[in-house]
Design a protein around this nucleic acid. Structure first.
Lengths: 152, 152
DNA sequence: ACAAATAGTTAGCTTTGCTAACTAACATAG
DNA sequence: CTATGTTAGTTAGCAAAGCTAACTATTTGT
């Protein structure tokens, strides 16, 4: 995106509009970079993110997974199929309600996630490590606010 | 994503890995939401972002635009074509070097961006407005750091 | 027992990333 | 001045991931 204060309609610095606008821009740029780092693990960001929910949150239904990842059920169904094809998770039919499909990470899924997520954030992590403790603190403080804005 | 501290391999809270990992997660979730808000303007996030560069940064070559948006030239070429088809920008051949194509926003582009970007961040902006001044400050402080991490 | 609701899947479309291969224009070495 | 190499952009073709619509198979409830 571009700098503020160039347009006559640029919002006042520090206003809600200004924060929202600049955050939007920053998020776009940061995510674009993070997407590239993901490549190293051989899995895309959406797949790793879904797998992460399973590894850290335990077995889930497809619907719950879709809700957690804020995507529609068909989208998650397809992501789950891709992860299943790679042997990273398995579908387990629910005996008490046969419409339901529970999904759980396999041992390979756990392993890949732990190795992969480290690789995934490695470059970013290195940059973070290069920051001052104060800067790191500022980012850490802002993260819960970002999650709040994301609608968690 | 999920909570930390569940895995035995979760990075120490506040460590570079922890910051990187949680920021990655927060960015994914925030962006997923922002992407939906974009729909209201009738243009996608990448298109609006590119148009924004033109409106706030002035006419650019396709290559410069691609660099600014951190995508490859063919990707930007296609986005430019889409925006051109919608009358939001125009290609202007460079007289001094006829390989070069300069791209500039049309009046319609300016208008749409100014109206659209407001609409685009409206929901987010409303949520930001609901935050305390202190929280807003914390986000604002973190934004330059996020841009730095994004590699600007 | 039949209608309505719920969980997932499948099919098909769009957008946006990418790389590879191409054209056109410029720059420079011989 | 030509030949070679470099640079800017386009075209073509692929994959991933988002969506809606339409379908199947269950379960629930009247």
């Amino acid at each position: 995106m571009a700098s503020r204060q160039v347009s006559s309609r640029a919002p006042r610095a520090g206003s809600a509009d200004d924060v929202a606008d600049r955050l939007h821009s920053a998020a776009i740029h940061l995510l674009r970079r993070l997407r590239r780092e993901d490549d190293a693990s051989g899995q895309s960001a959406p797949r790793l993110s879904a797998l992460s929910v399973l590894v850290f949150g335990g077995p889930q239904t497809i619907g719950a997974l879709a809700a957690a990842e804020q995507v529609r059920v068909p989208t998650m169904s397809r992501v789950v199929s891709a992860l299943e094809a790679d042997g990273l998770l398995r579908r387990v039919p629910d005996p008490s309600d046969r419409r339901v499909v529970r999904v759980e990470a396999t041992a390979a899924g756990h392993t890949l996630l732990h190795a992969g997520r480290r690789r995934r954030v490695a470059t970013l992590s290195a940059d973070v490590a290069r920051m001052s403790a104060k800067e790191r603190r500022m980012i850490l403080d802002a993260i819960p606010l970002l999650e709040k804005l994301a609608g968690r």
